[in-house]
Structures are given as C-alpha cells and as structure tokens.
C-alpha cells in the first residue's frame, strides 16, 4: 500500500527548499517506505488473517489478500470464542472493559484535575512533598504495592469486584493525571487567578468558572491517556478484576491460550483486532493530540 508513495515526491516541491529527485531523496523515501512496511505489517497481517477461512490460512501465505473475504471469524470471535469452558465470545470482555473504563475515566480525570488545581493555586504545607510522592507513584513498579492492596480489598470484601478495579485505576492513575493537570495550570498566567480572587471567587467558583472553561485541551489529553491506558491495561485487570470483571485484554489472552485441536488463527486475529479497535480509533481520531498526550505524560514532571 505504501508502494505508490515512492514516486510522488518528484511531482512538486515540498518543504522550504525546492526539491529535485536526487539519489538521496529516492533513498530517503525508499527507507521511509521500508520502515512503514515494517510498522504496518503486523496490522495488515492481522486484518487479512481475520478475514480468511482456516483452509486458506493453511495454504501458508500470510501476506496474501483473502480470496473470499468473510467476517465469519469476527462474529465467531465476538460471540462464540471460548475462554476455558465458557464460549460466549470476547464480547464479555468488551463490555467488562466498557464498564471498567467509564467510571474509572470520570473519577480519575476529575480527581486529577481537582488535585492539580489545588497543587497549582492552593499550596499547603507539604504540598511539594505530596507532589514528589505522586511523582514517585508515577514510576513505582506495581509489583511492590499489589499484594498489600489485594489484602486490603479482601479484608473489606471488595476483591475481584468492579468497584475494586475502578478504585485501583483511579488511585494508580492519580499520579499521571495530577502531573499533567498541574503542569497545565502552572503555565496559565497567575493574574487570571488573582483577578478572580479579588472579585471574590471562592475555591469552587474559581475552578468552575475560571479554570474549567479554558482547560478543554488538557481534558482531551487526559482523556486520550486514560482511555488507552485503562483499555490496554492487563496486569491490574488480571489481578483485581476477578473472573467476573475480566477486562478485554485478559480475556483475549485467555481465548488465544484456549484451544481444542486446531488453533483457529482467524478467530484469534479477529479477537485481537476487536481488542485493538478502541485505542486505535482514539489514536486515529485524536492525531496530534495523542502525540501531545504521550509526550506530556512521558516527559513532564
């Protein structure tokens, strides 16, 4: 699909300097095309495999387009694929992930923005220390806190429940959410805040009427980060979700690991694609925002 791209640059000038089709330019586009093939190959192979019949897959040409493309494997993956003895398809995991995602998103983003607001404008004794603690929390390996959290949730009888996994995502997402909101608020001019204070705005009024209206960009970044982060989570869902709230990633892994007789690669790849669709859609729709999200989430602090 990228093959047509090689020839085109010669057509017109691009960038600042006028371009002629030099050997260097051809080499550049060739290298980019090869790289693009490397990056697109797994996605392409997943898609074509999911559209083939097992007979066709057995012929052994993974990159061939399907002779008779069919969505049969997709419907099987959605509604019939087996996890152990349960054969209700990956839809179970999909809806579990949706049920986990929505409350976790709302709570964690709200929490991040309000704590970020406090850390920017309402510094208290120890607030720098608190911020440092959150920074530590953003980097700490989950293995060192998982077992105590299991014990706590077992003690209060929430282990393996939906609220448990939502709380876990909120608490463990708090560091990164607070970091990005605090960083955003700290770039705003402080006059804004002072003026509103002089006008008599209180804690909530400031947040609601002054900050929220201008915070849309950072909410979008937070949303992108959390949707992909929570949807793609495996470890936390595996441990805290229990068998009733298994997120899609965990179920996907179980489906692929479960097989009697022949492995149904088409169903497996369809299930994999189904799991990838939500974050991919977020990625393709959000474009530059996604880049901003990952670089902000990654670099700042």
């Amino acid at each position: 699909m990228a093959a047509t791209d090689i020839n085109a640059p010669a057509v017109g000038p691009s960038g600042i300097r006028p371009k002629h089709l030099t050997v260097g330019r051809v080499g550049l586009y060739l290298a980019l095309t090869l790289a693009a093939i490397f990056f697109l190959a797994p996605l392409y192979v997943m898609i074509v495999t999911s559209l083939k019949s097992m007979d066709e897959i057995r012929q052994g040409n993974v990159i061939a387009l399907p002779e008779a493309a069919s969505l049969a494997a997709w419907t099987r993956a959605w509604a019939e694929a087996c996890t152990g003895l349960r054969c209700e398809g990956i839809q179970v995991g999909f809806w579990n992930s949706v049920r986990i995602l929505i409350p976790s998103l709302i709570v964690s983003i709200m929490a991040g923005s309000i704590v970020g607001y406090v850390l920017s404008y309402w510094k208290f004794r120890g607030s720098e220390l608190f911020y440092g603690l959150l920074l530590f929390g953003a980097f700490v390996p989950y293995q060192i806190i998982i077992y105590p959290l299991i014990r706590v949730f077992s003690t209060i009888g929430l282990y393996g429940s939906l609220p448990a996994i939502v709380v876990i995502h909120t608490v463990l997402g708090l560091p990164i959410m607070v970091l990005i909101f605090r960083n955003f608020y700290s770039t705003l001019p402080s006059e804004l805040f002072k003026a509103a204070r002089i006008d008599g705005a209180g804690f909530f009024a400031l947040y609601w009427y002054v900050l929220l209206p201008i915070s849309k960009p950072i909410f979008v970044v937070a949303l992108i980060l959390q949707v992909t982060g929570i949807w793609n989570d495996f470890l936390l869902g595996l441990i805290f979700g229990g068998s009733e709230n298994m997120p899609m990633t965990v179920q996907l892994n179980n489906i692929v690991a479960t097989f009697q007789g022949e492995v149904e690669f088409n169903t497996n790849m369809a299930a994999t694609m189904l799991t990838a669709i939500v974050p991919l859609a977020v990625y393709f729709v959000s474009g530059r925002w996604f880049v901003r999200g990952i670089t902000q989430g990654a670099v700042k602090g």
Binding site: I16, L32, F39, P42, W231, T249
Partner: peptide, 30 residues
C-alpha cells in the same frame, strides 16, 4: 521536509496505542 509527514508519523506511532497483549499476539502469529 518530506511529503506526507503526518502519514509517516501516524504509521510509525500507531503501535504505541496498542495493548502489549495485542502486540504480543500479532507478533506471535507473524
């Protein structure tokens, strides 16, 4: 200053949006 800059960027960055489980299974099959 290549043409279709955003196309190339999109292609090279999309794996970052995927779950490691998806990545692992895709490569396992490849």
């Amino acid at each position: 200053s290549v043409k279709w800059e955003s196309f190339w960027r999109t292609v090279f960055l999309y794996p970052n949006a995927l779950s490691f489980v998806v990545t692992g299974l895709a490569w396992q099959w490849l």
